[in-house]
């Protein structure tokens, strides 16, 4: 039981500082805008894609900095990330909302806030439904009082998925998943003794994250087919590789 807190702290070590992530994404967007003329400004959707793209770079960096992930061969690292990138993006978004988001607003990685009602009134049916689903999940997670330790465990559970096809070292991925699962269970039991099934409640959110992430991919792919997605991005590469 005394080993679990150390293990959780080890998982937290590779977490990125929100302020640094925000600065990096902002700097990248500003570089992009500065390189364009007055009549060549990016539209809102393209800016959102570039924000997601930069966040994705950050998530790959996060995985790379993790001791447990480093133990895997690059081939396995590739298939795991290729399989869960959209879930990691959704989880990252959810955590940001739980931590910083105000009621009725979406908090972006750049620190900007957008009212949900504005998005719903301007976006199409699919995007509106996605935003609503994500906001419902944010409410559920807020009600569960998700903490940093629990959030990082969910990220690891999504990343170390032994069910991913063509993983070579399945045993190691499975062992890591089991270890994180146990640490999460012990943590929820110790810190939320009044809440008898917080662990179960947290795990039940993962299929919802998965479902939203699949809808995100489908939406992005449709926009890609319409030629709306910026080229030469990690986001497009992930989408392409998964679909090919």
């Amino acid at each position: 039981a005394t080993l679990a807190p150390n293990f959780l702290n080890q998982l937290l070590e590779s977490e990125q500082d929100e302020g640094q992530v925000c600065s990096k994404v902002l700097a990248s967007l500003q570089r992009e805008q500065a390189s364009r003329g007055k009549h060549d400004r990016l539209n809102t959707f393209t800016i959102m894609c570039k924000m997601a793209d930069q966040t994705l770079f950050g998530l790959v960096e996060w995985a790379r900095n993790s001791t447990l992930f480093k133990e895997l061969k690059v081939e396995d690292q590739m298939v795991l990330l290729q399989s869960c990138w959209s879930e990691l993006l959704v989880l990252d978004h959810l955590c940001r909302q739980v931590t910083y988001g105000k009621q009725g607003c979406i908090y972006l990685v750049t620190g900007q806030q957008i009212e949900v009602s504005t998005i719903i009134s301007q976006a199409g049916v699919t995007l509106s439904s996605l935003v609503s689903r994500a906001q419902d999940l944010v409410s559920k997670l807020k009600a569960l009082h998700l903490d940093r330790h629990e959030f990082v465990c969910l990220k690891y559970l999504v990343l170390f998925n032994p069910d991913v096809k063509s993983v070579q070292n399945r045993r190691q991925v499975e062992q890591t998943q089991e270890r994180v699962n146990r640490a999460l269970m012990e943590h929820t039991q110790q810190t939320h003794q009044g809440h008898s099934d917080k662990f179960g409640q947290l795990l039940l959110r993962l299929p919802e994250v998965r479902s939203i992430s699949l809808q995100v991919e489908e939406y992005l792919f449709q926009r890609h087919l319409q030629g709306d997605l910026p080229c030469n991005s990690l986001l497009t590469e992930m989408l392409h590789t998964k679909r090919s």
Binding site: V60, R64, V74, Q77, Q82, L234, T241, S244
Partner: peptide
């Protein structure tokens, strides 16, 4: 055969010490 994600491979493989 599946397409290889060259950008992801580069990001995972790159040497940060140089």
């Amino acid at each position: 055969k599946k397409k290889d994600n060259a950008l992801l491979r580069y990001l995972l493989d790159k040497d940060d010490t140089v």
